[in-house]
Design a binder for these strands. Structure first.
Length: 190
DNA sequence: AGCACGATTAACT
DNA sequence: GTTAATCGTGCTC
């Protein structure tokens, strides 16, 4: 059963922490399923957070983050990469969790085919790597992830104890001013 | 209309 | 450690 909208309609930091260990499932058009356990997330929270795209307010790009929780916010960056986020908080408040890394469970052969020439350990250890590996791109933007019909959803997976979770600053923020640059909103499984 | 830059990656010195 | 690749977005003129 997919995680329901009520799971995502909570404070973004709670959702980011609890998504660790959850299973991401991508059902391809062929019917084959790729699954992985989420091992790294980051929270982006509201217009005040100057690292969050919503700092620009409501625009065509950020509209999805203002929408209902449990939708995919997939955006294009650096001219070549797609990044997967999941919208959080009640509708109207712009926030999301970036999925930064996962551990492939099933569909490894297909994942390898999507990431030719890449060593197994490196297939999905970055936010743009996992979208390529799982064939997630712009057409998934604004997709409802609380139903299986759309071919992309999440489920409860493994329990991750706090002792295995590392919390630290978000990465890749070069021109973001303090305090936002250093907020400990990144969650990783050791 | 023009421009600077980016929630990155892979290859390279 | 550095850097090229590559283009949509939002801001300035």
């Amino acid at each position: 059963m997919p995680l329901p909208a009520s799971f995502y309609a909570r404070p973004t930091l709670i959702v980011a922490r609890e998504l660790l260990g959850c299973r991401l499932i991508r059902r391809l058009e062929t019917g084959e399923q790729l699954t992985g356990i989420i091992t790294e997330t980051e929270a982006y929270i509201g217009e005040e957070d100057l690292a969050c795209h919503a700092r620009a307010g409501l625009t065509p790009r950020t509209r999805v983050m203002y929408g209902p929780p449990g939708r995919a916010y997939v955006y294009f960056t650096y001219g070549m990469h797609w990044l997967l986020n999941i919208v959080t908080e009640p509708e109207g408040f712009p926030a999301a969790v970036l999925i930064r890394a996962l551990e492939v469970e099933t569909g490894l052969e297909q994942v390898r085919a999507n990431r030719p020439g890449i060593p197994t350990q490196r297939l999905t250890d970055g936010p743009a790597k996992l979208t390529r590996a799982f064939a997630i791109a712009g057409h998934h933007n604004n997709l409802d992830l609380t139903v299986i019909e759309n071919g992309l959803w999440l489920e409860p997976g493994r329990e991750i104890p706090d002792s295995r979770v590392t919390i630290g600053p978000r990465v890749g923020l070069y021109t973001v001013p303090e305090p936002w640059k250093s907020m400990p909103w990144r969650f990783r499984v050791q």
